[in-house]
Amino acid sequence: MLKLLKVDFSRKNLTMKKFKLEKIAHRIRKNIIRMLAPYESHHIGCSLSIVEILTVLYFHTMKVFPKNPGSSKRDIFILSKGHGAAALYSTLAEKGFFAKKILQTYDRDGGVLPEHSTRVVPGIEVSTGSLGHGLPIGIGFALSFINNHKPNRVFVLVSDGELNEGSTWEAIMFAGHHKLSNLTVIVDANGLQGYGQTKDVLDLSPLDEKLRQFRWNVYNTNGHDMEKLIAVFNRLDKSQNNWPNFIIARTIKGKGVSFFEGKFESHYKSVDEKTKQEILATL
């Protein structure tokens, strides 16, 4: 009886949490559309695909301190797929790292938010933009924390196209060999990369088996389902083998905006002001 009650309670808690997070994700997604510079902003689909992942990381999983971004207690997040910066800026603003009105300087002349994430922005640890850089840098942080016996964790979000990069696999080998258990990689597996479908360009399937061979704990999940994402992130610290963690988050490019959803060209295409307003009206 007691056990049942407990389960019910945590279940209810999770549902409430999920509901709350979904509202936040909705605002983050809406802000991404609001901040777009008509005709100028690209990389929209690959920002929309990571909204739920970022929401769970910043509003559930990671220790972050919006009023003291450099706190020594913080977990480290690296957006290795720097072209998803719009989603990260929007998330950071939602979390209170900086004022939301700054989002309107995205992709604008004289603005402070370039289309690839930059460390000048409060809350951003590493400037990225070229693929295959984030994971090696994340390893540097992870080693530093382990050697100093610190509990901080490191999260690196990569794109599936980025798994083509040799430097990413150099890093995968290293982290597996050195048992960097404080390191978690999330791949935004939207199945589309720069010039085609991931499975047509360089098919890495079965990715989970490959990663296990490299001594990583692998978790498959739906990258838009808050409840599932929370469950996966909650499991991370419970493995006994000290392997690093790899979350394969299946996502949909352009998720949540029918104009972009599932479309390859959402990586490149911009929108005009009229279309932008039409999209906003649907959200």
Binding site: I137, G140, S144, S167, F174
Partner: peptide
């Protein structure tokens, strides 16, 4: 780091960013 110079320079950057 092994015969993996790109990873080595990335790791160096992460260590330096963490204050080393």
């Amino acid at each position: 780091v092994g015969v993996a110079e790109q990873n080595m320079l990335g790791i160096a950057s992460g260590l330096a960013l963490s204050g080393k």
